[in-house]
Design a protein around this nucleic acid. Structure first.
Lengths: 159, 159
DNA sequence: TAGAACTCGGACAGAAAATATCCGAGATCA
DNA sequence: TGATCTCGGATATTTTCTGTCCGAGTTCTA
């Protein structure tokens, strides 16, 4: 079970975008985060498709959040990049082999699939309770209250 | 985030092994579950390395559980196949780029990494509370109390 | 006691997915 | 009206996962 590397960049990008009212180009975000520009752009496109960020074309274009950061959960961002399919997918082993069960007796998911799904729900619930605003606030607190202001400054001055 | 397909086979194999006191060859398990024999053997080797099953060579050899099924959690099985590394790994973005933080101020994990780790702990806790014996009991209950007995019979008769 | 058959174990190709990149379409400003 | 800057999807490369094979070791039988 491995989470795509782009998830980290997407989360950091959302936190960064929460500090700017103006659109921020993908190349600028890549420079700030030290990531491959073209690949980060791909992740931002996924966020755009999911309705988390809005893209603006043209000379002063870039990406910006569509909603207040307090209304965007970390779960949404992860799902936008990594997809919504569950990590565990049952291939219905019980319907194969010499002791195969008939399909009409398999309406309920297999007990193993139920246990795995319950664990994933616990994971999703934990991530759903955290918002991008929470992350920005915690990162700021870790730095002693200077980090987010520095980001905002860098985004506006180095235009 | 995708979980290896072998996790499903390993969990079913452990449930099956809990119904037999005699060792069961990998080929037999593959036949019962309808899976590629050689590939299932690979997963069983991983279970062996993790200390969940014991392998016995020779004519009447095969695999058997090392402990009572009630003392083997689903989490152990998943970790044996999928590895123990966390799905999200922080690449320390905060230490890169023009606003990079010095390493000495990064002793605590990044707030984003903390949130992701907390979600994974919730996932692991849910799986850790379920044992192989629980799974066998639930599968049996789903079938009306006939499934596990049928497995035990098949394992001994079709020798 | 020697042979034969059956078992596991790690080393070996093929397929799928993720990673990284490029150039074209569209919009804004001078 | 033209030039420049932006995003967007289609395109190679690398890594991981899936699937397979043959050799080493052990047990039972003659």
């Amino acid at each position: 079970m491995k989470l795509s590397n782009g998830v980290e960049w997407a989360l950091h990008s959302c936190v960064t975008l929460s500090q700017s009212r103006e659109p921020v180009p993908a190349a600028r975000l890549a420079e700030l985060h030290g990531t491959p520009p073209a690949y980060l752009a791909k992740q931002l496109q996924a966020l755009s498709r999911a309705g988390i960020v809005r893209s603006t074309a043209g000379q002063v274009g870039g990406y910006s959040l569509t909603r207040p950061a307090a209304e965007i959960s970390a779960l949404e961002v992860v799902r936008a990049i990594d997809g919504t399919e569950p990590a565990y997918r049952c291939t219905e082993i019980r319907q194969r082999g010499p002791l195969a069960l008939p399909a009409e007796r398999c309406e309920r998911p297999c007990a193993i699939a139920r246990a795995m799904a319950a664990a994933e729900e616990a994971w999703a619930r934990a991530l759903g309770e955290v918002t991008v605003a929470d992350l920005a606030e915690r990162i700021d607190a870790d730095s002693g209250g200077t980090a987010m202001a520095a980001v905002g400054r860098w985004l506006t001055t180095t235009r």
